[in-house]
């Protein structure tokens, strides 16, 4: 009986060691990211810590990210604009009690100031492929431009996907735009890799609004993160307001996650409905408890 107990204890210890090694390698694979660990944005959406879901510790501001959508319910555009305009300052103004955020703050601040200043006068380049997402065009008067100091975006509408991809690659390589938002249909792995390399060469961020067909299999890509946002269903009894389900569904070194967020169309921003739940679970994980105990708004 004692022997059995010893064996069980050893097996548990071995399993924990394997798990720790896997966790270490998941978190340690940082050098492959273009921005390295210093430039990542640790907290998004008004204080949501991403260190548990992205191995590098947060959102990488340089590189290609994807937002998957079938039809744009409007929230995908808001999410794309939010991700395109997110600046590393958010982590300083964000949910400061989180340990991961504090760590990012201390590492990323000096490096990002110069970059932010250089990109502050550059505009967003919005490339729309006709009939890719919806037959409706993006209505720029809904954007919060003119109210802030942001320069007006540069917009392009094209018929052919190859022209859209070429233009995005050229703009990404030049580094003359703050970030690029591309609305397009599905594309192959080579195109995605070219876009990713162009972003890394020019230090540009690209958000791709990628059309996913119903029932179709999504082609893999080299995007750093892959997001999905859908409105929370409402019933006559419960009006959900602007609540959406935001999901991190894939990417490089990504552990999927889902959150309830509230969209604000007047400022084109998103915020988690209850950041305290995410904060609690983050603290629990940092104290060595694994798997984490997610809150009710989080599914892992």
């Amino acid at each position: 009986m004692l022997c059995l107990g010893k064996m069980l204890a050893e097996r548990i210890r071995d399993a924990r060691a394997v798990l720790a090694r896997a966790e270490k390698s998941w978190r340690g694979n940082v050098s492959c990211f273009p921005g390295k660990a210093g430039g990542v944005v640790g907290c998004l959406f008004g204080g949501m810590a991403l260190s548990r879901n992205i191995s590098i510790g947060g959102f990488v501001p340089v590189g290609m990210h994807e937002v998957i959508c079938a039809h744009d319910g409007g929230a995908a555009s808001i999410l794309a604009w939010y991700l395109a305009r997110i600046a590393p300052q958010e982590q300083r103004a964000g949910y400061g009690r989180l340990q991961g955020c504090e760590q990012d703050r201390s590492q990323g601040k000096p490096q990002n100031n110069a970059q932010d200043h250089a990109q502050s006068n550059r505009s967003v380049f919005w490339v729309r492929q006709r009939r890719a997402i919806d037959q409706g065009g993006f209505y720029h008067l809904a954007l919060p431009i003119g109210q802030a100091t942001d320069p007006p975006p540069l917009m392009m509408t094209v018929d052919q996907q190859d022209i859209a991809l070429w233009s995005c690659e050229e703009a990404a390589k030049s580094g003359q735009v703050a970030s690029i938002i591309l609305e397009t249909t599905d594309y192959d792995l080579t195109s995605a890799r070219r876009l990713q390399l162009a972003c890394e060469a020019g230090g540009t961020r690209m958000i791709v609004l990628r059309r996913a067909f119903h029932g179709g299999r999504l082609m893999p890509s080299s995007a750093l993160t892959r997001w999905k946002i859908e409105p929370a269903p409402s019933t006559p009894d419960t009006k959900t307001g602007n609540i959406h389900h935001l999901s991190l569904i894939g990417g490089r070194g990504v552990r999927p996650g889902s959150w309830k967020v509230k969209t604000d169309a007047s400022t084109f921003s998103l915020s988690v409905v209850d950041p305290l739940e995410d904060g609690l679970s983050e603290n629990q994980q940092d104290h060595g408890r694994y798997p984490p105990q997610g809150g009710p708004g989080r599914v892992i």
Binding site: H140, L143, P152, L154, M155, M156, T157, Q160, I163, A171
Partner: peptide, 19 residues
Amino acid sequence: QLIDRICHHLGPNDILYRP
């Protein structure tokens, strides 16, 4: 210069503009 390069590749119905 970037705008020049992109404009030279635009098709007949493609447009590049600022809102």
